[in-house]
Design a protein around this nucleic acid. Structure first.
Lengths: 145, 145
DNA sequence: GTGCAACAATTAACATGTTAAGGAAATGGA
DNA sequence: TCCATTTCCTTAACATGTTAATTGTTGCAC
């Protein structure tokens, strides 16, 4: 047996990259009709899901690094899809909220996005789909469960 | 029942991103001692695995887009870790090969990289590790098997 | 109060992801 | 031969990933 490197054919990082590419391709196709990117869509999704929140929480829930979120929030604000307001209690903090226009983007594409998600469940089967989500979660050190 | 969007808590794209982050974090830590990035490491891995090849094949095996590979190859060439030569039969083609210095980077870190990979097998268990790789492969449309 | 550590957010700098356009070489006819 | 098409690769432009440095704010010890 061995401590040798696995072949790149059977490498977990590469498998994760390719799976992500396969999953995101149809979503990117869908978003190509809009003016927003995959990450901007993710941020709007989280805001629609949980409502107004501070930047730190938004970054965590969107799985984005802080500097990325700073730029994305600025872009979304310029496009009129979110609003940024200072927290009066702690003026370091910033609260971000989705606007009606932003919510409209979500609503307009939610059915198609749901259909794409269902498609992947069909490919794997419901049981294996759940298995996959569980296994992926166990690779995420930030998922303390 | 529903065609409604799944909560972002249980979203496959986000789970893939977080898993990738969890897997790559220790690898990035390892590479921080070197002068190369995660993607440059991946390219060198493939070249060490398969030997000299043209850019198209290298891009496929490294799961990199062509424009990214163009830049990465130039960077690695400037660092002296790969060589680029024109194919005499087809002068459009370019052949890329790892150098001794590049191979040394791989050799010096292969044990540690293998140990990191083993760590993830331990976290999931060997059987579930294989299950995960299989499920991920089924999400990759480019994996015709 | 003053000074300092801790925190939230931004900015900077560089590498990569992504799409589109461009350039050079090969290919396949008319 | 000529030309359109295809193929391989590069360049450009913009968005994001990543790390480090910087700017405001807060809270706390003194």
């Amino acid at each position: 047996m061995s401590k040798s490197l696995p072949s790149t054919n059977r490498s977990l990082p590469i498998a994760l990259i390719r799976a992500r590419e396969g999953v995101m391709a149809p979503i990117r196709d869908m978003l190509s009709e809009t003016s927003i990117t995959e990450q901007q869509w993710r941020v709007l999704r989280v805001l629609a899901d949980f409502g107004r929140m501070d930047t730190k929480t938004l970054a965590d829930r969107s799985s984005l690094l802080f500097p990325s979120l700073t730029r994305i929030a600025a872009t979304l604000r310029d496009k009129g899809f979110v609003t940024q307001t200072r927290d009066d209690q702690d003026r370091r903090r910033q609260l971000i909220e989705i606007t009606a226009a932003g919510q409209r983007i979500i609503n307009d594409h939610a059915p198609q996005a749901a259909q794409i998600a269902e498609g992947f469940k069909d490919i794997l089967g419901a049981a294996e789909y759940e298995t996959l989500l569980d296994l992926l979660t166990r690779l995420d050190p930030g998922a303390q469960d």
